[in-house]
């Protein structure tokens, strides 16, 4: 899948002239891409260890794609998406526990809430640029963490919420773990699909324009703030859905887990970064690189010495950053350019 052709935001001068692909071609690439990501599931569906990893990979791929909408395409590097994730998780779990509302429906209130809350809290901070904005969103995460601990009646406080195992389709609780994997796969597929449709729509082009040069976009008549707010709403809603799915998979949620920056809030950013920010496929590639690697290293080396597996992970991250400077998507692009050159030479 060539990330260039899907209307990426990669401003490299190597973008082919004549631009955009027709819908049919895009749909084909999308289907092929999804099939490729399905392969690990098909191969390893009987191995519980890998199944669990693949489930998280799909989930976080979807979450990274959601993050990328406002961060990669919109240029607003957020480290506060953990807030939306947590709202989705708490809402879905609470509605299920207290009012027996099926999570299939219960995902929506959280998404809608974040579609409102997201723009609300990001709006005043949009005037902050670059890293300032990132650090301000970190503050959101920290404030929300304290509140989640404090407001025991809403979130269960430090104890959090536990969803007992009552398997039923309508409960979104399954005895067969493969059902969860498929569920997360569908989430990822939907997130990627929305991403593609968005970036080929007018809102998507405006978003890119705003990212490249806000003043020019404003001069061209684009309502910068509206564009950003809409993208935020979409990004936050998708993230909330991911949070709700997470809650139903892991079935025990507490503030420390949901607001953990390295595991959740910052992880969305890291996956997109290494995969290739501002591309459709980048976040997915990043998830497929980091999550299996991290889990595999923990499984193999976790018992060896304290922290050994994480040292290895850190080195892989450093090397990845140094040798794949535009992320995995960028590296794949470079390879394709290389082959094109060699063929035409």
């Amino acid at each position: 899948m060539n990330s260039d052709d899907l209307a990426t935001a990669d401003p490299s001068p190597n973008r082919p002239a004549g631009g955009i692909l027709p819908w049919r071609r895009v749909a084909l690439l999308y289907a092929v891409g999804l099939l490729v990501t399905l392969v690990p599931l098909l191969l390893l569906s009987r191995n519980f260890f890998w199944l669990n990893i693949i489930t998280y990979t799909y989930l976080f791929a979807g979450l990274a794609v959601a993050w990328n909408i406002i961060a990669g395409f919109g240029g607003q590097f957020s480290l506060g998406h953990g807030v939306f994730f947590a709202i989705g998780a708490y809402t879905t779990a609470r509605l299920f526990l207290d009012w027996e509302i099926s999570p299939w429906l219960g995902l929506l209130p959280g998404a809608i809430a974040c579609a409102v809350v997201g723009p609300l809290i990001f709006w005043p901070t949009f005037r902050l640029k670059g890293s300032f904005f990132a650090i301000a969103t970190l503050a959101f995460n920290e404030v929300a963490l304290v509140l989640a601990n404090y407001l025991e009646s809403v979130t269960g406080g430090p104890r959090g919420l536990q969803v007992p195992f009552r398997a039923a389709f309508k409960n979104m609780i399954f005895t067969d773990p493969r059902a969860y994997t498929v569920l997360m796969f569908v989430f990822m597929a939907i997130a990627v699909g929305i991403s593609i449709v968005l970036m080929r729509s007018r809102l998507g082009y405006y978003l890119l324009a705003v990212r490249e040069d806000e003043d020019a976009a404003r001069a061209a008549g684009i309502s910068v703030i509206q564009v950003k707010l809409r993208a935020t709403a979409l990004s936050a809603a998708l993230t909330a859905i991911g949070g709700g799915l997470f809650a139903m998979y892991i079935r025990t949620i507490d503030p420390l887990t949901l607001f953990s920056l390295p595991d959740i809030g910052v992880k969305f950013a890291l996956l997109s970064l290494i995969g290739g920010m501002g591309t459709i496929t980048g976040p997915v590639l990043g998830a497929f690189l980091i999550i299996p690697l991290e889990s595999y290293l923990r499984a193999v080396f976790g018992g060896s010495g304290p922290g050994v597996h994480l040292i290895l992970l850190g080195f892989v991250m450093l090397l990845a950053a140094l040798f794949m400077r535009r992320g995995v998507a960028g590296a794949i692009d470079s390879l394709r350019q290389h082959w094109r050159h060699r063929r035409s030479a």
Binding site: S295, A299, G302, H309
Partner: peptide, 22 residues
């Protein structure tokens, strides 16, 4: 004795799967 590293619930589930499967 086989060790399974887990510092949060997510990792706990993964550790169980790992210890059972591998």
């Amino acid at each position: 004795l086989v060790r399974g590293d887990a510092a949060n619930p997510q990792q706990g589930i993964a550790a169980v799967d790992q210890l059972v499967t591998r």
